[in-house]
């Protein structure tokens, strides 16, 4: 929540998260380097670095992409979402080591500028099998760079959440480029199918979990089903848990309807921070609290509590005979609307 910015706003859980992440990265690198030097004593240091960082980066990207849909099925997995940006930035640095070493190794020290060589040495752009796979990795790295460089709330605010989110959705483009980078590159040099099967398993897991999460979202969405003037009948009061919300959609609009202190309020479903689903949040200290990073809004006006300044759209609500009605036309961001009394 944007009152002031620090380079990294450390807290105990972020420190634990980063310590575990660093431990896992080190464990993989140590295991990979140890096994490779035992199995292939003739391997060179630069080849080992390229392979260790390349395999680690693609594994980390799979973990990063799986966390989102996993959190849709396992609420406890939201703990992995909280500091995912540090995971993403670390993954970028590991990818950058792989990329820089590869460019120096394969394109440096020759009769052409290494970056020019990257694009001009292998010109089989119209062949699938012989396609210059390294440029796929290069473009993926460029995308990851922009994502890592803007992976801070300062940029989120500067770019606007919508633009920032669009930029960070480019991770799926980077992922696709990297899958083909591996498929058309190193896997073509290997006789064993093991690498290919692992990549296939990873891709199926990432795609499958996203599809399943999408299906779950669709199933959970409830449509407004009966009109009453400007208001739409949405559900019974007792269908909403206390201090929690239910999600409703109307003509592409998602609205989180909260029950708390014998009152009902309705706000836009998307958090101003990173678009987290507020319908999965909770009322804590009188505020709607986002399940992703804990950003908060007052339910009756959609405003973050002072000194924070974020605002989300609010909606009028009525409760009649135990039934909840919502006017799906928003009163605007941060508009104060009296909550509907249940009794």
């Amino acid at each position: 929540m944007s009152v002031g910015y620090k380079f990294i706003d450390w807290n105990p859980q972020k420190k634990k998260y980063d310590a575990v992440m660093a431990g896992c990265i080190l464990l993989y690198l140590l295991a990979f380097i140890l096994l490779n030097t035992m199995m292939f004593p003739e391997i060179t240091a630069e080849t080992l670095i390229i392979r260790a960082t390349g395999t680690l980066a693609i594994l980390m990207l799979h973990v990063i992409l799986i966390i989102g849909p996993l959190a849709r099925f396992v609420p406890e997995a939201k703990i992995l979402l909280y500091n995912r940006r540090h995971l993403g930035v670390s993954m970028f640095f590991i990818s950058a080591i792989h990329g820089i070493f590869s460019i120096i190794q394969y394109h440096g020290g020759g009769n052409e500028n290494p970056i020019v060589s990257l694009f001009t040495s292998n010109m089989d752009y119209f062949s699938f099998v012989e396609f210059p796979f390294m440029i796929l990795g290069f473009f993926a790295l460029v995308i990851l760079f922009f994502m890592a460089a803007t992976s801070h709330d300062f940029w989120l605010n500067k770019l606007s959440p919508k633009t920032w989110k669009r930029l960070h959705m480019m991770v799926y483009v980077a992922y696709t480029l990297l899958i083909f980078h591996v498929l058309l590159g190193t896997l073509q040099n290997e006789k064993s199918l093991l690498g290919f099967l692992l990549l296939l398993l990873g891709s199926i897991t990432v795609c499958g979990m996203h599809i399943m999460a999408g299906i779950k979202n669709r199933k959970e969405e409830q449509l407004f089903f009966k009109k009453s003037g400007e208001f739409e009948l949405v559900c019974r009061v007792d269908e909403i848990e206390n201090n929690r919300a239910k999600l409703f959609t109307f003509k592409g609009k998602s609205i989180a309807i909260y029950k708390y202190d014998d009152k009902i309020s309705a706000v836009d479903n998307y958090c101003k921070h990173q678009g987290g689903p507020l319908s999965e949040g909770k009322i804590i200290d009188g505020c709607i609290t986002c399940p992703w990073h804990g950003w908060q809004y007052l339910p009756e006006n959609g405003q973050s509590p002072p000194p924070f300044q974020e605002k989300i759209p609010t909606y009028e609500v009525r409760v009649t005979k135990g039934l909840v009605y919502v006017n799906p036309i928003s009163k605007g961001e941060g508009a104060a609307i009296k909550a509907a009394q249940i009794n």
Partner: peptide, 18 residues
């Protein structure tokens, strides 16, 4: 992590003895 480090190592072809 340990399993994948092993599989990705063993999945590589032989490295030149040059």
């Amino acid at each position: 992590i340990l399993l994948l480090a092993g599989l990705l190592t063993f999945g590589q072809g032989m490295i030149s003895k040059g």
